[in-house]
Structures are given as C-alpha cells and as structure tokens.
Simulated scan of single mutants.
Amino acid sequence: MAKKDGIDARHYDVILAPHITEKSTMASENNAVVFKVANDATKPQIKEAVEAIYSTKVVSVNTLLSKGKSKRWKGKPYKRSDFKKAVVRLADGEMIDITEKVN
C-alpha cells in the first residue's frame, strides 16, 4: 500500500477515539498515547493514521484486543462488545494533546 501525504477519510475509520484511563494517563508520561481503533486495523494502518491526523512521528504501535465481558441487566444476560486498543509510542519531543480538537 502506497503511503499518501495528508489526511484521508479512511484514517478516521481506523482511529475511533482516545482511550482515557488512569493507566493511559500514566503512559502519556513516557510519550505513549492509547486509542480505541477498528477491530480489523493493522499496526501500519494505525501508524499512518496517527501520523496523518496528528502530524507527529510514531516510533512504535502495540495493539491488544479486549474481549467483551458477560454481564446481566435486569436479570437478563448480555455481552459487551469486543474492542481493540492501540498503544502508540511517539518520538522524543513529540506530543499529542487528546483534549484538543482534531485537525
């Protein structure tokens, strides 16, 4: 797949939302940002999307698939959806402020 310059609509299909938790906030001290991504997204796609959307240099991408929990609501069982997270490590000096508006 050829690398394109600029933001494409498919980049927004790969990166769904920032994943804000205590653990991801602690990771941000080490130049890492955690995103919820599409379940079928690959590491190169995630890297390309983050670099295009946020105009930063990505060093590495680690992904993990969180399986949905089985829960009960009003006595009836249901299952939460599975989702994929990506831990994106940025180059030294780079920073993403996830509280700001995206380009």
Rank of each mutant, 00 (worst) to 15 (best):
E94K: 13
L64S: 13
L64E: 13
I98A: 01
K84C: 00
G75V: 06
D82S: 04
A2F: 07
G93E: 07
K47I: 01
K47C: 00
K101R: 15
K23W: 03
K71N: 09
F83T: 02
E94S: 05
I7V: 15
I96H: 02
A38N: 14
N30V: 01
V34G: 10
G93P: 06
R89N: 04
E100S: 10
M1W: 08
S55K: 15
A91Y: 01
L65H: 15
E29V: 08
R72Q: 14
A9C: 02
V37T: 12
G68S: 03
M95V: 07
S66A: 10
A38W: 06
A49G: 02
E51W: 04
K84V: 00
D8N: 10
G93R: 04
I15H: 01
A32W: 00
T56K: 13
K69G: 07
K67R: 15
I7A: 06
V50I: 12
V102I: 15
A86L: 10
K3L: 13
T99H: 13
D5W: 04
M26H: 12
P18W: 01
K3Q: 14
V102C: 08
D82F: 04
E51R: 04
K69Q: 13
E29D: 10
L64K: 13
T56N: 05
T63S: 06
K84Y: 00
N31P: 05
R72K: 13
L90Q: 09
A32S: 10
E100G: 10
M26N: 14
S66R: 14
Y12N: 08
E29W: 09
I96M: 05
V33C: 07
I98C: 08
D8C: 04
A17Q: 15
A2N: 06
S81K: 13
E29I: 05
E94N: 11
K84A: 03
S66G: 01
T99M: 09
K23V: 07
V102T: 15
E48H: 06
V59L: 11
S70F: 02
K84N: 03
K79Q: 15
I96L: 05
S24L: 04
K101W: 11
A32I: 13
G93Y: 08
R89I: 00
K101P: 01
V87C: 00
V58K: 02
R89V: 00
V59F: 06
V59Y: 10
S60L: 03
P77E: 11
V34N: 04
N39H: 02
H19G: 03
